[in-house]
Structures are given as structure tokens and as C-alpha cells.
């Protein structure tokens, strides 16, 4: 019993610690790439909790990402240290998700997708016009974090990898918990889930809150890393879609699929970006189209398609 809890808690962090030691002395390009990988993996894992395991296709990733980035930016400009700023980013995003969830989580399918899609637009407009606090469309600068042990790039590599490990642990724990069972029931047949006594509202809200917590944290670290953010950058709609693509690439609803998907996506992105800087968004668009048209696996099911199929973790036969 202890091992079943301890292993998912310890293993991702152990892997990440080793990776950090190996990567931290390499050149700036590799470190930047690895940091981006940590960010993508954490985002894909976080989306997967609500979008994959619970089957609620959220397009609100950009909203929580941007919110986290701005909460950190404003907090740090008011003098909060890095850790406090990032913590506030996570807390702010989670709190917002809890409130928002009560308004939109009773919507199903397309209606939920639309409602979630609009959230980022609203936040972007508000950020744009609340100039006194956010700097408006001009964006906002963040102070450089004070570091002694690590260089700046090493610090953010460690932070992003840590978040990826934490998101992995959270996914593994959810997968083995009552919450995970409830979410899978909801994804497959929400009415039937209620009839067997699943408190669907509570389960969905938790999934949304946990997912948004991680997205907010990632947004906070991202803002501190790049030291300058503006509304079009952090509330970018592509930020909502990339994690979905990664999860689709790796396997929606599985625990490790999004991590693999994030890696595969990063490789594709790197190959294309470097050669086609001017037209990279167009290429990303083409990539999405090709992926959607030629994604392997069942045509009517998206769960379990991709590199990793549905896990069988709590499926131990009698």
C-alpha cells in the first residue's frame, strides 16, 4: 500500500533529478530545449487530467497559463520573491478554475469547448485594458530572480522539470484514486456515473482545479523565465491547442502518453521552426491538419489512440 503511493511520488522526481544533473552543464540551446520540454510535458499532463481522463475538452489552457503568468508578473513587481510569485500563480489559476467550473462544467461537449475557448479572450481583453496593473498591451517586465547556486537558465530548467515531474506524479496518483475512477466513469457515460452514486460535479471540479493549478504554475515559471510577457503572447490560442495535440500524439487519457507526445511535438516544432521562421504558425497549422487526418488508430474513438493506449493500472483481474 505504501509502495503504491510512494512510487508514483518518488519515481518522476528521481528521473527528473538525474536528467537535470546530466543536462545542466550542457550548452544553452540544449538547456532551453529541455526547459521547453518540461513546460510542454507539464501542460500536456495538466490538460490530460480534465480533457483526457475526464473527457471534458477544455480549450482554456491559454487562459490559466496567461493568468498564472500575469499573477506572477504583478506579484514580483510588487516585491514578492520568485517562489511566492509562482505559488500565487498556481493558487490564482486554481481558484479561478474552481469558480469558473461551477459556471461551465455542467455544459457538455461543444458547449463546454466554446465556453472554455472564450475565457482566454475575456482575460486577454481585461489584461489589455487594465493598464495600471498589467501594463496593458505594452506588456510587463519581470525582475530577474536572485540566484546563488544556479545560473538563470539552470534555475528555470530545474523549475520546469520539477513541474513536469509533479504533474506526472499527480496524474499517476489520480489514476489510482477514487477520483480517477470517477473521472473515467464521467468520460464514458456521465448519466450512468451519477446513477451509481458518483458526485460528478465534485469530481469534475477537482479535475479542473488540479489541471489549472499546474497550468497556472507553468505560466508563472514561464513569465519569470522569459522576464517579459504581453497579452497576445501568454493568452495565445495556440497555447490551448498545443497540449491537446501533444496528448493526441501520445495517447489521450493515459498517464505517460502526454509526456511522450510533448517530446514528439517538441521535435517536430524544432525541426520546422528553425527552417521556417516566417511561416512557422502556418506550418504548425498544416501539422495539425496532417495529424488529424492521419492520426493512427480508431476513427471514432480518441481515447487510447496514439503512442500509448489506455493504462490498465486499476484493472487487476480477480
Amino acid at each position: 500500500m505504501m509502495l503504491r503511493i510512494a512510487l508514483p511520488l518518488a519515481l518522476p522526481f528521481a528521473i527528473v533529478a538525474v536528467a537535470f544533473v546530466l543536462l545542466s552543464q550542457t550548452d544553452a540551446y540544449i538547456i532551453r530545449l529541455a526547459t521547453t520540454f518540461g513546460m510542454y510535458a507539464a501542460l500536456a499532463l495538466a490538460w490530460n487530467i480534465i480533457g483526457g481522463i475526464a473527457g471534458y475538452p477544455s480549450f482554456a489552457t491559454a487562459a490559466f497559463f496567461g493568468l498564472g503568468a500575469y499573477v506572477t508578473a504583478v506579484a514580483q513587481n510588487l516585491g514578492a520573491p520568485l517562489l511566492v510569485g509562482v505559488g500565487l500563480a498556481g493558487a490564482g489559476a486554481a481558484l479561478f478554475a474552481g469558480l469558473l467550473g461551477s459556471a461551465i462544467l455542467h455544459l457538455r461537449g461543444k458547449y463546454f469547448a466554446i465556453a472554455s475557448l472564450v475565457i482566454a479572450e475575456v482575460l486577454r481583453e481585461l489584461t489589455n485594458s487594465w493598464t495600471s496593473v498589467t501594463g496593458g498591451g505594452m506588456g510587463i517586465n519581470l525582475p530577474l530572480a536572485k540566484t546563488t547556486l544556479l545560473t538563470q537558465p539552470q534555475l528555470y530548467l530545474a523549475a520546469m522539470l520539477f513541474l513536469a515531474a509533479a504533474a506526472t506524479s499527480a496524474s499517476m496518483l489520480i489514476d489510482r484514486s477514487r477520483l480517477g475512477v470517477a473521472l473515467r466513469c464521467i468520460a464514458q457515460n456521465e448519466d450512468a456515473a451519477q446513477i451509481i452514486g458518483v458526485d460528478t460535479r465534485m469530481a469534475k471540479t477537482w479535475a479542473f482545479v488540479i489541471s489549472s493549478l499546474f497550468i497556472g504554475l507553468v505560466g508563472g515559471v514561464y513569465a519569470s523565465w522569459v522576464t517579459y510577457i504581453d497579452p497576445t503572447d501568454v493568452y495565445d490560442g495556440a497555447m490551448s491547442v498545443k497540449p491537446i495535440l501533444m496528448a493526441l500524439l501520445g495517447g489521450v487519457g493515459s498517464v505517460f502518453g502526454p509526456v511522450l507526445g510533448a517530446f514528439a511535438y517538441l521535435l517536430l516544432e524544432e525541426l520546422l521552426w528553425r527552417n521556417l521562421l516566417e511561416f512557422h504558425a502556418g506550418i504548425l497549422g498544416l501539422l495539425v491538419v496532417l495529424l488529424v487526418l492521419f492520426l493512427p488508430g480508431g476513427l471514432s474513438q480518441i481515447r487510447g489512440v496514439g503512442l500509448v493506449s489506455l493504462p490498465k493500472i486499476w484493472r487487476r483481474a480477480p
Binding site: K110, V241, L245, L248, G282, L284, G285, V289, L299
Partner: peptide, 30 residues
């Protein structure tokens, strides 16, 4: 193009039109 995914879940069709949108937007931008 779109006809190939008509029978798929709406997340897929939505992603497809999103991808087409990125492409068209970027083309017009260029």
C-alpha cells in the same frame, strides 16, 4: 479535406479547422 473526419469526435473536427485557420491566417499575414 474536412469530409475525411466528419465521423470523428468533434474535438478532432475542431482541431482540423483550427489548423486550417492557422495556415490561412499565416498565409494572409505573409
Amino acid at each position: 479535406v474536412i469530409n475525411h473526419v466528419m465521423a470523428r469526435p468533434f474535438l478532432i473536427t475542431l482541431l482540423l479547422t483550427f489548423g486550417l485557420n492557422l495556415f490561412l491566417d499565416n498565409s494572409m499575414l505573409a
